[in-house]
Write a protein that binds this DNA or RNA. Structure first.
Length: 910
RNA sequence: GCGCGGGUAGCUCAGUUGGUUAGAGCAACUGGUUUACACCCAGUAGGUCGGGGGUUCGAGUCCCUCCUCGCGCACCA
């Protein structure tokens, strides 16, 4: 039942009301529905303890738009929500809390620590779900999954076991990126290279075989001298050729170390001599391997030096040790010089400290189906939007290295490997790898480590459904919803997450196979379209961050602008694929648009009779048979154009343009022109156009609501119901949005035809009105509503159009009378396609001002004519350009010349 | 070093395959309460499309080159 709208729109009451109604009704539930096409999006799971920030607002608004559009189109839409345990991030937070209490995870022990972590995630978790609800996210909350749920954990362990059995997972001892703060290994992707200002120390080592002779060596890390087990030069470096095979003295602890030749050394850098510390540098490690140099690890896991570095360094923190080592070199007279130096240092992304290459034993994944993952994108089975991200993705895959998946953390899925007690743990014969563990656990010890967070989230598109399982329901749902329709995320996790999901989907969602056909790829990929959006930055282009305090709380913005206002605002300012400069001012447009929509509907309600709105057929029936008047024809043709435009924008993922299209159509075309023109027809109920004008309004509003609903779900739902469109209390999502061509044929079947030529005439009428308004403004009578206008029509047809639209022209231009004349002299006028419109001034015309204005216009037209005629005189243009372009140019020139002549005449008549 | 993206009105951005006199929103300015809306209405002004060269009948759009800003990857101790 339609209800009367309040004077102003209040999102604070309307939005929560509808959200609750929706959720209670189960209308967000995504179910297998035979006969309906599925449309699935898996949410990029936010951190379980995370709070909603602007990035989430953008990401989830976009997802909700696609999901709700799918529902309005009659698909079975499933938006699958959940949260990620964020192993390292969460553990860091819990440990921080423990430190504040004066304790630590080690003191607590694994079991107690995990209790605390669970407690933490229970307390802080779920907040973001509430916030997403407030934003209007239409997730199927029944299904919400957490990556630490028992069932999900089993999926993760099952994937480990499966990949192990298929030979992709192995254990290896090598240099890893070690984070001394979190004391865990990290993957290459978790290391961020940052330029650092430091020192380059040039020192000298004495040659053992030639006392008194020294080689000079540059280093940025003197604290690792104690781990040096060699010195290397380039094999073709003549300066040092005679030294290769000899030895030099490592100053402390003093020892002889060999001089080797290796191609990894850059001749031209520094002195061309490299100190080799195999245990603390990747390049050095490789050199060491090639020359059988021993490894001396001089550091503890926490970044302090150990006993091997000598008594005076033992227990000293690494940066302190650097200074001490430098001082000691000075003392020994071995320092040659120290200069300021900037180089790139790897930082732990989470803990923010420099990582330490460290030798340790870890679990690695050799990525499966790399070739297929490339092929999926190269062949367009999986498509990035914008397309340029394909290159980034492929580049990463082309340089892919095995992934270190074990973490020395406790919060996460514990690696499902057991080692036989008392046996050689390095021998796989003594391993037990399974989801449930050995049957005689007393004889085994489980691996202490957990898996990298991303090693669990990369299963998200299928593990959430219960994979792997023999349950027919799981199979049925996967068959129906998987591969999912699209993924919406930021470019910052293309490597971390997107690429890995594709590879795990390819490997795990079917039988073990060495190679896949294109068809198999098509069935196994986790999604078909990847919509990559930019990051939100502040108005100065800086990243939003807590420390800068430049990140607004989305809930404050919702308070101010409403969730719908914020949603529209953020989409409206988000250019496709590049970063978004956020400013609150730019969100206002969303709130203003809500208000406009509300008021336009309120205006329509005041005219009465909205109870006849229910079905599309009802409205179309009210139009049937009668011929559409000009503006009605025009706005309906604009509606069909707009609908078609939006269909294209959805298919091309142009959400930014979508917002503009909707805004322009509803505000610029419907409110500013149609409604204003319709006022003239609504003035009297006897006006023969009265009922049709109402029906046209109803048709436009109905479709605007349907088109806008994905972007602004709450207000459109409220209006859908208040304006009487709801059938038996049904939601707008069941409104059955037709395509532009479907709607066109529905109208045609009812005898309502949209006439393109008629619509073009109205565009001309609009132009004439604008010209009249401009002339009035020029003479400072813009606000007078009783002026007289004269029109000298261009031809009979134009005259007829003006006659036919006389009352709306009067209304919209603000004139009491309009007279059609053969000619008019001595009055200011403007030229339009239909003819010249003059302003009748009772007072004298400011001839000089008018001359200036017209001369300026004349000048502009002359320029255009010159360009146009020059073009047409050019035989090359006439011969080579396609005929329609030449005709267009000719027509253009004629029109412009006519306009020029008319203005010249006006000017002359003054 | 390799790669990607941007440089169009004061600001933020559109500008499909090259084809009318390059658009929008905001800000500015002028004038306004008319059957909803000042979160409004009407109007005005503002751009040699980063520079240079080329292809073409025709270039904001294609090619080359340079400048400039941002980002990613790699990395020499």
């Amino acid at each position: 039942m339609p209800t009367e709208l309040n004077q102003s729109y209040d999102p604070k009451t309307v939005e929560p009301k509808w959200y609750q109604t929706w959720e209670e009704s189960g209308c967000f539930d995504g179910n297998v529905e035979a006969g309906k096409d599925p449309f699935t999006i898996m949410i990029p799971p936010p951190n379980v303890t995370g709070m909603l920030h602007m990035g989430h607002v953008l990401d989830n608004t976009l997802q909700d738009i696609f999901i709700r559009r799918a529902r309005v189109e009659g698909k079975s839409a499933l938006w699958f929500p959940g949260t990620d345990h964020a192993s390292i991030a969460t553990q860091v937070k819990v440990e921080k809390a423990l430190r504040a209490e004066g304790t630590s995870r080690r003191e607590l022990g694994r079991e107690k620590f995990l209790e605390r972590a669970w407690q933490w995630s229970d307390e802080h978790g779920g907040i973001i779900f509430k916030q997403l609800r407030r934003l209007g996210a239409s997730c199927d909350w029944r299904r919400a999954r957490f990556t630490m749920d028992a069932e999900y954990q089993r999926s993760v362990l099952a994937s480990f076991v499966e990949l192990y059995e298929r030979g992709y997972i192995y254990r290896g001892k090598r240099l890893v990126n070690w984070c001394p703060a979190s004391q865990t290994a990290l993957s290459n992707e978790e290391v961020e290279m940052k330029p650092q200002k430091g020192k380059l120390y040039k020192m000298r080592y004495e040659i053992v075989e030639e006392p008194g002779r020294f080689v000079e060596i540059s280093t940025t890390r003197p604290e690792t001298i104690m781990g040096d087990t060699g010195v290397a030069v380039h094999p073709e470096d003549e300066r040092y050729a005679d030294l290769v095979g000899k030895h030099c003295w490592r100053p402390f602890p003093r020892a002889e170390i060999p001089i080797v030749a290796d191609r990894a050394v850059e001749k031209d850098f520094g002195t061309g001599v490299l100190k080799v510390t195999p245990a603390h540098d990747q390049v050095d490690f490789d050199i060491g391997q090639r020359h059988n140099l021993p490894l001396i690890d001089v550091m503890n896991p926490d970044g302090t030096l150990n006993a091997l570095s000598g008594p005076e360094f033992e227990g000293v923190e690494r940066f302190k040790a650097r200074q001490m080592a430098a001082a000691k070199l000075e003392e020994l007279g071995l320092m040659v010089e120290v200069e300021d130096y900037e180089n790139n240092v790897g930082f732990s992304e989470r803990a923010g400290v420099p990582i330490e290459p460290r030798l340790s034993e870890q679990w690695y994944l050799k990525y499966p189906k790399v070739e297929e993952a490339k092929r999926a994108v190269e062949k367009g089975i999986v498509r990035f939007h914008p397309k340029r991200w394909e290159k980034v993705y492929l580049h990463w895959l082309n340089n892919i290295q095995d992934w270190c998946i074990s973490r020395q953390l406790w919060w996460g899925q514990r690696i499902p490997v057991w080692y036989r007690k008392g046996a050689d743990a390095s021998d796989p014969a003594n391993w037990h790898v399974s989801v449930d563990g050995p049957e005689d656990p007393e004889n085994w010890e489980q691996d202490e480590d957990v898996l990298d967070t991303w090693a669990s989230s990369n299963l998200w598109p299928f593990a959430t459904f219960g994979w792997p399982s023999d349950d027919p329901k799981v199979k049925e749902e996967l068959d129906y919803f998987y591969p999912t329709s699209m993924l919406v995320t930021g470019f910052d996790i293309i490597f971390f997450w997107v690429a890995r999901m594709i590879m795990s989907g390819l490997e795990l969602t079917g039988n073990s196979k060495d190679a896949l056909t294109d068809e198999e790829i098509d069935q196994r990929v986790p999604f078909k379209d990847i919509f990559i959006h930019g990051l939100i930055r502040d108005e100065k282009g800086r990243k939003m961050s807590k420390s800068l305090g430049n990140s607004p709380d989305p809930l404050d913005l919702i308070e101010k602008f409403g969730a719908d206002g914020l949603r529209f605002g953020i989409i409206n300012i988000a250019p496709s694929g590049s970063d978004i400069l956020f400013s609150e001012e730019r969100i206002e447009i969303g709130r203003n648009f809500c208000t406009k929509l509300w008021n336009a509907c309120r205006f329509r309600q005041m005219a009465g009779g909205v109870s006849k709105n229910q079905r599309l057929d009802d409205i179309v029936g009210r139009l049937a048979g009668s011929e559409l008047e000009g503006y009605g024809n025009w706005i309906l043709s604009r509606l069909l154009e707009t609908m078609a435009e939006i269909e294209g924008q959805f298919s091309r993922f142009e959400m930014h343009a979508l917002a503009h299209t909707l805004h322009n159509f509803f505000w610029g075309d419907f409110c500013d022109w149609y409604v204003e023109a319709a006022k003239a027809m609504l003035q009297s109920e006897e006006d023969p156009r009265h009922d049709a004008a109402l029906a046209v309004s109803d048709l436009v509003i109905r479709h605007t609501l349907l088109l806008l609903h994905p972007v602004m779900p709450h207000i459109t739902e409220e209006l859908w119901s208040s304006m009487g469109y709801s059938v038996d209390g049904g939601f707008i999502q069941d409104g059955g949005l037709l395509t532009a061509s479907e709607l066109k044929s529905v109208l045609e079947k009812a005898g309502v035809t949209i006439d393109a030529a008629g619509a073009a005439q109205i565009e001309n009428v609009k132009e004439l009105i604008s010209q009249a308004r401009a002339t009035k403004a020029e003479y400072n009578v813009a606000s007078k509503r009783d002026v007289t206008l004269f029109v000298t029509p261009k031809d009979n047809e134009s005259g007829a159009v003006v006659e036919a639209n006389l009352d709306t022209i009067k209304k919209l231009a603000g004139a009491a009378t309009i007279e059609l004349r053969e000619s008019v002299d001595n009055l200011p006028g403007s030229v339009s396609a239909l003819g010249t419109v003059y302003l009748d001034l009772s007072s004298a015309v400011d001839v000089e001002a008018e001359k200036t204005r017209l001369s300026k216009e004349l000048e502009k037209l002359d320029k255009a004519i010159q360009a146009g005629s020059g073009k047409l005189k050019n035989p090359n243009f006439v011969d080579k350009a396609p005929p329609h372009v030449v005709d267009g140019a000719r027509k253009q020139l004629e029109d412009t010349e006519a306009k020029r002549d008319e203005i010249a005449r006006l000017l002359g008549s003054l």
